[in-house]
Computed example of a mutant assay.
Amino acid sequence: MWGDMLERHELETFLTLAEELHFGRTAQRLHVTTSRVSHVVKKLERRIGALLFERTSRRVRLTPIGQRLADDLTPLVDGIEEALRRATDAGRGVSGELTVAFLGEWGAPVVSAAANVFLRRHPDCAVRVVEVQLSTSRSSLVDGSVDLLLASYPFDGMAHGPVLLTGRRLLAVAAHHPLARRKAVSLETLGDHPMVQYPAVTSAAFKRDRTPDRTPSGRPVPRGPEGTTFSEMLSLVALGQGVLPVGEETRRYHPRPDLVYVPIEDAPPIERGFVWSESRATARVREFVRGATEAVLGGSGE
């Protein structure tokens, strides 16, 4: 399968050691002895005619040739494994029911487009589309009531697909706020005003990205009140109790006369895509993410 040059166990041993850089951990992962790992690596080095690892009593590291081999082989092996997964899924068929959730009105069109592609390919599988709130987004994935969620990255503790949407960051401020008259603000501005907080159950990585504790220069960002839903958080902003960084789609889906959305000129874009629990990465989940990628980023969709 792997060709005459490398056998599968040699590839697996080499790539695992390239990742772990430790013979003991590599042996544990592969359920073999450390001497077996050493034997395979030495045999592979003799075949290639060059050292792939530098070994000392303190550490193991890749040689330049070893690093290049690892960089070249990894995507090839990943591609073969993905092809095998797809063939296996096709052989078994994709059926049953898939529950896909979105968080906020902006996500509904993306979920619908992805579902249409998925259902054309897999008519024996039903798709149920639901909306979740900030307070239930994570718990729904953990308890299995939702298979997939269209969300903002990062979303810690979950597997994720490719970035499907990107957008500018804006700062939501009250219409009477001094910043409402500005054409743009910087991230440093966040250190001068209380920031409305997401619910405690929200992804910690997401909160660090969207509502950071410090500005780029290290100044602390004052904490404002915590909301339970996104609409409630915007209402806290409108009442003058804090500001809130949001995505540019908020201006379209939440236009309010008591709010102004000011561009944050030096902030990186917000990235969004599907997340799911790795323990529930079924064929249905993988096929839906593939369909979503083609529906949003391009492809035949057939």
Rank of each mutant, 00 (worst) to 15 (best):
S277D: 13
L84V: 11
R290S: 15
R58L: 10
A101C: 11
R208P: 00
R36Y: 13
S152A: 10
V221M: 03
A115K: 12
D124R: 14
E12Y: 10
G167F: 11
T56R: 11
R214N: 01
R290M: 05
D266G: 07
D213Q: 15
G24R: 14
L164E: 03
V40N: 08
E54M: 13
H122S: 02
R121W: 04
A267T: 01
V129M: 13
P220S: 12
K207R: 13
G247R: 08
V196A: 05
H177Q: 09
G167C: 14
F23G: 00
E19Q: 13
G191R: 12
I264M: 08
S139R: 15
D124G: 04
D78T: 02
P199N: 02
L84A: 10
V130E: 04
L164Q: 03
A159Q: 10
Y261R: 13
E265K: 08
A267W: 10
A70M: 05
A151M: 07
A50H: 08
H22K: 15
V201E: 15
L179N: 05
L44I: 01
P212I: 00
T99W: 15
E131H: 13
R86W: 12
M233F: 08
V94K: 11
A295M: 06
A204H: 14
F155R: 06
M5D: 04
S35K: 14
F155G: 00
A126S: 04
L119Y: 01
P162F: 04
S95W: 07
T189D: 12
G161F: 05
V94I: 15
H31I: 00
E20F: 08
T88F: 15
V77L: 15
D78F: 03
L98T: 01
T189V: 05
R214W: 00
W2F: 11
V100N: 02
A114N: 03
S203A: 12
V127W: 11
L11Y: 09
T215V: 02
G191L: 09
V127E: 04
S231Q: 09
P222S: 05
L119A: 08
P162S: 03
E45A: 03
Q28P: 01
A108N: 07
E271R: 13
R68T: 02
E302N: 07
M195E: 02
A126K: 10
D4C: 09
S186L: 06
T56L: 10
V127K: 06
L236W: 09
L30N: 05
G218W: 00
R8D: 07
T250K: 14
G298W: 06
E82N: 08
R286A: 10
D124N: 09
C125W: 10
E12R: 15
L21T: 05
A238D: 04
V41C: 05
S235R: 15
V94G: 09
T16E: 10
G161M: 02
A114H: 12
G66R: 10
K42N: 08
R223Y: 08
H31G: 04
R280F: 00
F23I: 04
E97N: 03
P245I: 00
P263F: 07
A114D: 05
T293E: 15
T293L: 11
E265M: 07
L259D: 00
A18I: 11
L148V: 07
R128W: 10
E249L: 13
R138C: 00
F102E: 01
R272I: 00
H254N: 05
S139D: 12
G291N: 02
P220E: 06
G291Q: 06
